[in-house]
């Protein structure tokens, strides 16, 4: 803990305030000022220039009736569910690595996990976009080769989706119905190296004797996961859950790169963040974009509050 100081000492040490000044100045200018400005401008019709017109709550009324925005909220809720599911492989992998007997292998796997991080995130995205390519893409090759394509076509006949056909390459990012599935498949098998390392660090605190005791009680591998391992990494899991939900909620980089600034065919990949970006930088409606930002902010704030109240993260 920091020391409490006497009055005299404070007077003597006033120069210390200079130490926090750079951080503070930066944050005030580039975080607080824009935030205040966003609140202010959400009441204006403003196209980014010097002229603006006060229109009261019109931007918010418009947002409230904006079908695109509500659809975007639906899409982003689906994406959040996807991402929750995508957390599972990382947890499983961490547990698998942790259960290995050999320490050398454990270390080797940790290093191997980090290797894919040398590919910049943006490049990974583009490579996935390339995987999705209907004619050249790896994904369609794999589906053809393993016969899964035939299975998909069969299912299509059965359920009448009208999406998969024989002899027609699957247009993952071109068909409205396939946009959400593509956003789900993206990044398979969804291992986050940083996440796995953090879970592993949490698992490290389990002593061997805990396992031996569990074995004596006749608890199987699945039981061990739920009784021993999961509780120990629960605080890390919750933390990454929170961060993930917030990041998904405001994210739009993925959609922007894979699908373009209008959310792809049929706008099926439109998220609130992307719609805000679109309104501001494509349509030039900065005031309305600020209002969308406010709506988003309120949603995230509510999520954070709920999260802090009901999902406690113990230190």
């Amino acid at each position: 803990m920091s020391l409490s100081l006497s009055r005299q000492k404070i007077r003597q040490e006033w120069r210390l305030y200079f130490f926090v000044l750079p951080s503070l100045a930066l944050v005030l200018t580039f975080a607080y000022y824009p935030a205040a400005s966003a609140v202010y401008h959400s009441f204006f019709e403003w196209s980014g220039g010097y002229t603006k017109q006060l229109i009261g709550f019109d931007n918010f009324t418009r947002a409230f009736h904006d079908q695109v925005l509500w659809d975007a909220f639906k899409t982003v809720s689906v994406l959040i569910v996807f991402n929750l599911f995508k957390m599972i492989p990382s947890i499983l992998l961490a547990v698998l690595i942790h259960r290995l007997r050999s320490d050398q292998w454990q270390y080797a796997y940790r290093v191997l996990l980090v290797v894919p991080m040398i590919v910049p995130g943006l490049v990974t995205l583009f490579i996935w976009k390339f995987f999705f390519d209907p004619n050249l893409g790896v994904l369609n090759h794999v589906l053809d080769f393993t016969g899964l394509k035939a299975a998909l076509v069969g299912l299509d006949h059965f359920f009448n989706w009208g999406v998969f056909f024989d002899n027609v390459p699957i247009g993952w990012l071109a068909q409205p119905e396939l946009i959400l599935p593509s956003l789900f498949i993206w990044g398979f098998p969804w291992i986050g190296a940083v996440g796995v390392l953090i879970y592993l660090a949490g698992l490290q605190s389990i002593g061997q004797e805990v396992y031996e005791a569990a074995e004596l009680d006749g608890i199987g591998p699945i039981g061990k996961f739920f009784y021993i391992e999961l509780p120990l990494i629960l605080s890390q899991v919750r933390l990454s859950l929170t961060l993930l939900i917030i990041a998904t909620f405001q994210g739009y980089g993925l959609q922007l790169l894979l699908l373009g600034d209008s959310g792809g065919p049929g706008g099926r990949g439109m998220t609130p963040g992307l719609w805000m970006y679109n309104r501001a930088f494509i349509a030039g409606e900065f005031g309305y974009a600020c209002a969308i930002g406010m709506v988003l902010f309120v949603f995230i704030l509510v999520l954070t509050v709920i999260n802090n109240r009901y999902v406690r993260v113990e230190k």
């Binding site: 200018t29 580039f30 975080a31 405001q250 963040g273 805000m276 501001a280 600020c290």
Partner: peptide, 13 residues
């Protein structure tokens, strides 16, 4: 704070 709400005013700043 979600950084995203800031991006438009940040641009004009």
């Amino acid at each position: 704070l979600p950084g995203i709400a800031n991006i438009v005013p940040l641009f004009s700043l």
